[in-house]
């Protein structure tokens, strides 16, 4: 009984830590949802992707979060508003690459943010198109990514494990 209680307490504590860690992304998604007046689409079994990512850590990636918004009407003003929202959401995020393209008639904006997360790095890539918006956050270990980039065949021979 005591062991079961300890396990349950440990489980609840770890869930709270994970939720706290992921709250940043949820806040971003909520802020963007408010700007776009819509919710992201549900991606079935995405939790399994994260489970596999946590176990395998391909190319140093430890965690992935994804939010896709569809059927939008994003104009230049909305895109700018979202970028400003990001600035207010979390002080740790810094945009380091911004690409705005009007090629092929449609405007597309890609903003890449980077932040330190203890010994890891977090990258957030936001893509805004007239009718779709995608936000991807990846937490990765730079050293493991380096190892994968320098010796891809060696990493592949280990079944993709990079740790």
């Amino acid at each position: 009984m005591k062991a079961a209680l300890v396990v349950a307490a440990g489980w609840m504590l770890s869930c709270a830590v994970v939720q706290g860690g992921e709250r940043g992304f949820d806040d971003i998604v909520r802020a963007i949802s408010d700007q776009l007046h819509t919710r992201p689409i549900h991606i079935p079994f995405f939790g399994l992707v994260n489970l596999a990512t946590f176990a395998v850590q391909p190319a140093g990636v430890k965690h992935i979060d994804l939010a896709v918004f569809e059927n939008l009407d994003v104009d230049e003003h909305t895109a700018r508003g979202i970028a400003e929202t990001m600035r207010d959401t979390d002080a740790g995020w810094k945009p380091f690459v911004q690409v705005r393209s009007w090629k092929h008639g449609d405007e597309q904006t890609v903003i890449v943010y980077m932040a330190a997360d203890r010994s890891d790095c977090k990258l957030l890539v936001m893509t805004l198109e007239p009718h779709e918006a995608t936000v991807v956050e990846v937490r990765l270990n730079p050293e493991a990514l380096q190892a994968w980039l320098n010796h891809p065949e060696e990493t592949a021979s280990k079944g993709g494990f990079s740790r």
Binding site: K94, P95, F96, V97, Q98, V99, R100, S101, W102, K103, M114, A115, A116, C121
Partner: peptide
């Protein structure tokens, strides 16, 4: 038709 903006201060450079 396309604008690319790269901004890397000292902290971001260290991170990158």
């Amino acid at each position: 038709s396309e604008v690319v903006d790269v901004t890397m201060d000292a902290n971001l450079l260290q991170l990158a």
